[in-house]
Amino acid sequence: MDVAAVAQVESPLEQQFQALVDADGRVEPRDWMPDGYRKTLVRQIAQHAHSEIIGMQPEGNWITRAPSLRRKCILVAKVQDEAGHGLYLYSAAETLGVDRDELLDLLHTGRQKYSTIFNYPTTSWADVAAIGWLVDGAAIMNQVPLTRCSYGPYARAMIRVCKEESFHQRQGFEAMTVLANGTPAQRQMAQDALDRWWWPALMMFGPSDTDSPNSAQSMTWGIKRFSNDELRQRFVDATVPQAEHLGLTVPDPDLTWNGEHYVSGEIDWTEFFTVMKGDGPCNRERIANRVAAHDEGAWVREAAAAYAAKQQARSASQGVAA
């Protein structure tokens, strides 16, 4: 037996773990799990949580300027949901033995990232509509399979998230419909938003499977269920007819129908890498806003902690007196 073969022999615990996952069972917080599995999940869930809370900013940008009270109420509810998604996910990450404050610190110092999609600016109201329709639409494609992820707390958090996401997508599509059927200027805004968000939305699914070595391991562990390309294809197939319904043009001259699927043109990843590395239009602003919100809220957390300590001391002394 050579060295490589010896290294591949799994311990009984590892075998048990893999058997559970292969049988589509769920792993729960205090179960034994391979180190790599735990680390992958912590990273994935944390960066997913970061994406949810950073994702509040591009849309939050339009709350005060929503075109009607109805749209404003909807947008506030949607942005509040994204905060909730972040909280569900931070709790799921904490079941793996990390501390929430530590995760926030990693986000604030740039050592952990969030989805690149949130580094694009929202320059018009139509962008809010396009985000709900396309970005939340793409998120749903990614998130629905995660409701069956092998790690129980993550899967349960995703069930809650997915229930809320369909409202996000529908309100976006509805807002887009209103613009697409509006004045020529409004229709132009809608087309312009589709032009700018289409490719970034496709890039949300990540690189092609042949370029994504992490995917295979995540599939073995039951964390990932479908390949990046498969999910991207589903999104394209679902979304192109919606764009047609709106009377808008998908900004892909190479897009064709092969009798079964819509086949999109080549994705240009160079822009993606620029944004990824921190040189996107809004990277610095997003983190600066996040850090400012955290720092400016410090006094509230301190006051609440001081109040809790005082109440506790009071009830303890009353307990002694009684």
Binding site: H48, A49, N142, M158, M204, F205, G206, P207
Partner: peptide, 8 residues
């Protein structure tokens, strides 16, 4: 890679 819900 595309790990969490909101993409790569």
């Amino acid at each position: 890679t595309a790990e969490g819900g909101h993409g790569a």
